[in-house]
């Protein structure tokens, strides 16, 4: 397929898959806010999601494809780009590029590793079976997701992993949102500064939004 052979085409694949995952992350964050409503609202939200297994698996399938494309072409493009610049300068100086922009591959791989851990932790519930929601129903017989999250984030190590991962995600997004707009061609003199600043704001909001959960639970603000 020409789209996947061309450099520009593969960048567009990166942008579209990235935006799809960003959309998921935003929805995920909004869904998580039901934690603030207490066990009732969180567990009701979680069991409501599972009432439509077909829909859930459709979304999961799309996400998996997007994840695969993003990781595969991310690594492929990085290797090609490294090959295109084999020799570094003795004096290396950057005027515009950011730390986040130059380390997308590393923040990306770290997020990938975190996603695997996160799925094992909360979705497949194999890392902490003693608190898994699946085998600990709440008073209404629903999986007690609220308690699973509470017990997890009361542990310093787990909270630290989640908060660090969200900082890494924030770094990744701080470059990628504006980059995505540029790659799909949605940039002109007027929108360019908005994309850069807006991308940064969204990255910070997402990081703070997610990191807030381990923080408020670990510090005991959310009981």
């Amino acid at each position: 397929m020409y789209l996947l052979r061309s450099q520009v085409g593969r960048k567009i694949v990166m942008a579209v898959s990235g935006f799809s995952m960003l959309a998921f992350v935003v929805v995920h964050l909004l869904g998580n806010t039901s934690m603030y409503g207490g066990p009732g609202s969180m567990n009701a939200y979680a069991s409501a999601l599972h009432r439509f297994p077909l829909l859930i698996w459709l979304f999961r399938l799309i996400l998996m494809v997007m994840f695969y494309l993003h990781v595969f072409y991310g690594i492929a493009l990085k290797l090609e780009n490294r090959d295109a610049k084999p020799e570094p300068y003795v004096v290396e100086k950057y005027k515009q590029s950011t730390f986040a922009g130059r380390n997308m591959i590393w923040t990306g791989l770290l997020i990938g590793a975190f996603v695997v851990y996160h799925l094992l932790h909360f979705t497949f519930q194999v890392t902490n079976p003693q608190i898994s929601a699946g085998s600990h129903p709440d008073a209404m017989g629903r999986p007690d997701v609220f308690m699973m999250v509470m017990l997890s984030f009361r542990k310093l190590a787990i909270s630290a992993v989640y908060i660090s991962a969200m900082i890494v995600l924030g770094l990744h997004l701080s470059h990628s949102i504006q980059s995505g707009f540029q790659t799909v061609g949605l940039n002109n003199d007027r929108s360019f500064p908005i994309a850069i600043k807006g991308g940064m704001v969204v990255a910070i909001l997402i990081t703070l939004g997610f990191a807030a959960f381990p923080i408020v639970i670990f510090t005991g603000i959310l009981r």
Partner: peptide
């Protein structure tokens, strides 16, 4: 863009060093 790739140039990851 095809010729650019064939010549061994990398792809754009929007660092904007070029513009600077």
């Amino acid at each position: 863009t095809e010729a650019m790739m064939q010549e061994g140039f990398g792809s754009c990851s929007n660092h904007y060093e070029c513009q600077a």
